[in-house]
Amino acid sequence: MTEPLLAARPADTEPEPEPDAAEVSGLWTDAWRQLRRRPLFWVASVIILVLLVMAFFPSLFTSIDPRATDLAGSGSEPGPDAIFGRDLQGHDVFARAVYGAGPTLAVGVLATLGTVLVGALAGLLGGFRGGWQDSLLSRFAEIFAGLPFVLGGIVILTTFNPPGQPVPESRLIFQVVTTITVLSWPIAMRIMRAATITAKQQDYVKAARALGAGPLRIVFRHILPNTLAPVLVYATIQLGAFIGAEATLSFLGIGLKDPVVSWGVMIAESQDRVAQIPHAILFPAGFLVVTVLAFVMLGDAVRDALDPRGR
């Protein structure tokens, strides 16, 4: 079976490769080549990079202590003293926004990752295997989808953190992320499951099976690349929603709390004084909008790059 498919072929008809034909090609390399050409991708990446630096090294952006209060300056307008002004407690809004980037992004990004990973894995498994495994996973997901978010959050977080006890920052973030993931994964699962079932029924999957491809190959080479688009869209939209969800939990006193700062906490703290101290809510909200927008742009660019038809 190793002889050439065709009988002797004159050497001079051996086709020249296309000029840009590198040896390696495929969905991911082509997608990366496509991404590099998209300004949208670079704009989004730069914003996200800046936000990440801000999250890990807030002191590079401000030398002001975000916890320092200046009650005399409570609610003061943006000015040379505090460029974004001060909130009701007299905190420097800019410094708080910078220090809030870390916990906010941690919750938003990790919760999104958790939701998508758990949901997508469950959806992929259920959709691909079908039968009782699918039924079991789907019913299980319905139970979680049926829990009201706020109620579920209160139950989970107060169970693990009896009120009154101080909790380390990282543990609290982890708990909030877990809570959001537990309550949100069913939606990601449904999206992934539907996409998987659609992809599974395509003839190219049938052809791969006829070639003797194993389940792993079918899932990772054929189904997954064709199901990523809807999940990516969902993930980028959810990122913003999760940052908001974190704020809701904080507002209820069961999420992140002082001394941990997050944009959600800042917005929650200031929302009843929008009229008097608008800057205290506008600046963190602005950060939030820019962040969400950057992730949406990134998701959009990646989705387009993964679709050869769009090129």
Binding site: Q202, D203, A207, A208, L211, N226, R309
Partner: peptide
């Protein structure tokens, strides 16, 4: 024993290059 399917639009994975599609049999075997 191999199969050629009816629908030329759904029988090829849209996210694979022609080289990958025709080369996949060699990956599997």
């Amino acid at each position: 024993m191999q199969i050629v399917l009816q629908d030329p639009y759904t029988s090829l994975n849209p996210r694979k290059t022609v080289g990958d599609v025709v080369g996949e049999p060699f990956d599997i075997h």
